[in-house]
Design a protein around this nucleic acid. Structure first.
Lengths: 140, 140
DNA sequence: AGGTATTTGTTCGTATGTATA
DNA sequence: GTATACATACGAACAAATACC
C-alpha cells in the first residue's frame, strides 16, 4: 500500500534508471541513450512507455532528441555572462513555440527574462546564459 | 505555397487553437479547458492526440492538470520580490523530480538559481519569484 | 547517385487505474 | 455509489529524418 511501484516497471522507474546512468557518468554528454525500441525490449515495456521515460529526461534538460538519430545526453555549455542594470528585474518562464524556434531552445529549457524600467524585455536561453548585476557606478 | 490551413488537425494545431482561446480571454485563469474526451470528439481526433495538445500547453506553463477534475488555465500569481547581491550569479534550470515535489512546482516551470560567491545556491520557483538588485547601502 | 535500415515523431485504438465531483 | 477526468500502459501503423552502404 505504501509502495505503489511494486511489480511492473513504470516510466518513472525507467527514467530513474536512465537518470542514474547519466549521473554516474556511464552515459556521457553527447552520447546516445538506448533507443526507444531497445529500452522497450530490455525492460519489457511498450515502446510508448519507454518513450514517456525519455520524455521525462528531456523535460528535465538531461537529454535532447534528434529525429532519425537518437536521444543524446545534453552537453554542458559554458554559459555566457550577461550583465544587467541595477534597475532591471529578472524572471524566467517557458518559451513560446515561436521563441523556441527563434532561439533554438531545447525541450525543458526556460527563458531568462530581463525587464527594464521602461517595460522592455530582453530574453536569453537559460541553458546558455548566466546573469549578474552590473555594479552601479553611476553618480547621483 | 504548401498547405494554407488544410489537412488533418494535429496536436500542434489543436494546441494553437486552445492557446488562442486562452490569449483572447475566452478561457480565463482558473477555468477548466475542455476535457480530453470533449476535445477529441469536437475536433475529430483521438483522445491521445488531444492529450498531446494539452501536454504542450502545460509545458508552456499556460495550463495545469488537476487529476480527476480537469485541466485549468494557470492563474497568474503576483511574484514575490527577492533581492540579490551584485556578486550573485543568476541562472535557471528545470527542477529535478525531487525539487518539483518539494517546491510544488507545476509542469513547465523552471527554478531560478541564485549562486553566491561561496558557491551556495538559493532556489526559487520561477513562476512565483522575480529578482531585483539589492542596492548596497553599506557605509564605506 | 540511390536504397535500406534505424530512430524518433505522430496518430490511432483499447484497456485499466486513480482521483475528484 | 456513480460518473467524469486525468494517468498509465499496452498494441499497432505510418511518416520523417538520419545514417550507412
Amino acid at each position: 500500500m505504501i509502495y505503489p511501484g511494486r511489480g511492473p516497471v513504470g516510466y518513472r522507474e525507467l527514467a530513474g534508471l536512465l537518470r542514474d546512468r547519466i549521473a554516474s557518468g556511464e552515459l556521457r554528454p553527447g552520447q546516445r541513450l538506448p533507443s526507444e525500441t531497445t529500452l522497450a525490449q530490455t525492460h519489457g515495456v511498450a515502446r510508448m512507455t519507454a518513450r514517456e521515460a525519455l520524455r521525462m529526461l528531456r523535460a528535465e534538460g538531461l537529454a535532447a532528441a534528434v529525429r532519425g538519430y537518437g536521444i543524446v545526453v545534453r552537453e554542458h555549455v559554458e554559459p555566457e555572462l550577461v550583465l544587467v542594470d541595477a534597475e532591471d528585474r529578472i524572471s524566467a518562464r517557458p518559451p513560446s513555440p515561436h521563441e523556441r524556434d527563434m532561439y533554438d531552445v531545447p525541450e525543458g529549457v526556460s527563458m531568462l527574462v530581463v525587464t527594464h524600467p521602461d517595460g522592455l524585455q530582453d530574453l536569453y536561453p537559460a541553458d546558455r546564459v548566466v546573469l549578474a548585476y552590473r555594479r552601479d557606478s553611476s553618480p547621483d
